[in-house]
Each structure stands twice: as C-alpha cells, then as structure tokens.
Simulated assay, not measured.
Amino acid sequence: MRPLVETAANPIPAGTRVEALDLGKGKVLRYAITPASSHPLHGTIIILHGRNECIEKYFETITDLASRGFAVATFDWRGQGASSRYLRNAAKGFVKRFDDYAGDFELLFKSVILPDCRGPYYVLAHSAGALAALVAAPAFANRIRRMVLIAPLLDINSSRARKLTARVIANTLRSTGLGGTYMLGGPHVLRPFAANEVTSDASRYDRNCGVLESAPELAIGGPTASWIVAAAKAIKRVTRPDYVDTIRIPTLIVAAGADTVVSTPAIERFAVQMRNTTLLTIDGARHEILQEKDLYREQFFAAFDAFIPGTGGDDGSVLAEAGEDSEPALDVSA
C-alpha cells in the first residue's frame, strides 16, 4: 500500500493512519483516518473526492475539520489515487458504473468507519464524489446525518451539441469494447497555473502539483469512454423526480459561481427539486472551492459551520431550518 505523500507545503495531518481495505480479487482501497484535534468531539466527516483526486489533496481540509472536533475518514476511489487500478494502462480514469463507487463507500463504512469512528456521521463530497454520494444516499438515510455537496457533477459546462456528440461517441466506444479509450484529454500532464480551470489560488495549485511531482503515480489522465457513460447514467438516474424523492438526508449544496467544469444552472435546478436541501452559490469561486483562495474557502466554511451540528456553537440549525422540508434558499453569497 502506498504510504501518504508529504511535502513541505502539504504536511500529513497529525495522527493520520493509512491502511488498505480488501475489495477481493487482489484489489484494495487506500483509506485514511485522522482523529479530531480539539474537543468537544462532534462525530466523523467522510470526505468523498472528485475525479482524479487523492487523499493528499485534502490534507489542509482534513486539518481544518479535525480542528473543529471531527474525526475524518477518506479514501481514494477505485481506479485513482493509490487504490487499485482496473485497466492495464493504470493512468486511465475508468469505472464501469457509479454503483461500484457507492458499493465501495458502503463497504468502507460498514467495515471501517462504523467500528472505528465515532458518530454521528456526515458526508463532505466534491464533484464526481458528490454524484457518487447521491447514488449512495438512499441506502444511507438512517446512517448519514447530513451531507455537504460541493460543485456536484450533475452536468458538464458545455454546449448541448458538444455534450450530445460526446455521449454518442462514448456509448459507441463502450459498446464496441473500447470503453478504455480516452474521451477528454489524454495522459496526465501538470499544467501551468495560468492554464488551470479549477482554482484562482496559485499557492494551493502549486502545492497540489508538488504532490504529483513527488508521486506522479497518484494521478490519472482524462476520463475514458466508460467513465463518461457511467457518469451520464448516474446523472440521469439521480435527477429523476422519483429518485430525488428517495433522498432523505438533509443536504447543503455549494456551487461555484465561476465554475467552468460543471454546470451551476444544473445544480440550481436539482436543488429546487429536493425537499431537504439548501443551496449556496459562492460568487467568483472556481470548481475546486476547497482549493480556492481564503476569500472563498471562508465563505464555504461559514456555511459548513452553520449547517453541521456543533461547529457553529449551536445545533446546526441556521441553514438546516431552511433546508429541511422546505424550498431551498438559492444564491446565498457574501
């Protein structure tokens, strides 16, 4: 199992342990558990990463959450980070279906988090990880108290014609046995800060690049046709009105006002459908809000602290009252 990668700019959070969860057939998930660093204890936050992310990218956020009295559990999704890869070319991002992600999350929850981590349990998920959280949500109704979804992948930020073309090509490739073909991009390349779309914070971007310079095997390239098809099917499923009605976990959705990766309008339309959801749009923020400038991260954590019980010095009712059994409060920003 690949140990955690530490750099001068990205220290491992205090007390973190990293281990492997056996998935069978020689495959494993790399996971990490970090204890709370302050009292009183408020439970456990489970972080679900986006596509092509790894545990190391969340060290700063894990430290922030631990200082709030939470233990933090997180893991590398199958097919990325230091978890097992599923194609001969390990650099390709691949999954057959998002139910595989949801199944891995449920296995980790039952095998590791329930016995080893203090409840109550909360989910903090980003982008494709937020989509996986929505796939898993009906099965977790009585186990996860609240979810915070950051820039969930509910549609990509592109023209209708380009999206339709991509879906047709991806389905064709997958149906002809070429699901492992790159659809967007190719092998992973570290781009200069000026060419990135995900954050306006140069120091955090350089910090994350430094991790991948030290351990390039943690990165994957562009999504494959199979991954695109799996994501499209998951999006279609979780946005159906009958499916939305099965999501009972109170949820805070945080959208990035300057997101060029996923569609913020699609996120807003989805939030309107949900009974137990509050939507916060952070104006000016790019896709990776937790990797953004302090100005945007502080707005996120103000909403987080108001929504998650205990962190704001109350029972978390400030945003929860707006989100539970009511219409979402749209476009809340500083």
Rank of each mutant, 00 (worst) to 15 (best):
Q273P: 04
S159G: 15
E213M: 09
S84L: 03
G180T: 05
E321W: 01
H126Y: 08
A303P: 06
M1L: 09
G81M: 03
P11S: 11
I235G: 05
K25Y: 10
G69N: 06
L290M: 14
T44S: 14
A271T: 00
I62L: 03
D325Y: 10
A139C: 08
N142Q: 14
I253C: 09
M183H: 02
I33R: 11
I46L: 15
G312C: 09
P216R: 03
R30H: 05
T165C: 04
A133I: 02
I169Q: 09
L218I: 14
A271R: 00
F140M: 15
L41K: 14
P152L: 08
R160A: 13
F59G: 06
R204H: 06
S317A: 15
G129K: 07
L131Y: 02
R162C: 00
A166C: 00
F75M: 13
H287V: 11
T264G: 04
I113G: 02
A202R: 15
A128G: 10
C117P: 01
A73C: 15
I33F: 13
G119H: 10
L218T: 13
V332E: 06
L65K: 12
D206F: 02
R207V: 00
L190R: 10
A219N: 08
E19Q: 13
G103M: 04
V332G: 08
D76W: 03
A66N: 15
G180N: 15
G185V: 11
S159F: 02
A66S: 15
I267Y: 02
I12P: 09
L48Y: 01
I308Q: 11
E324M: 12
A141I: 01
K163N: 14
F98G: 00
G119N: 13
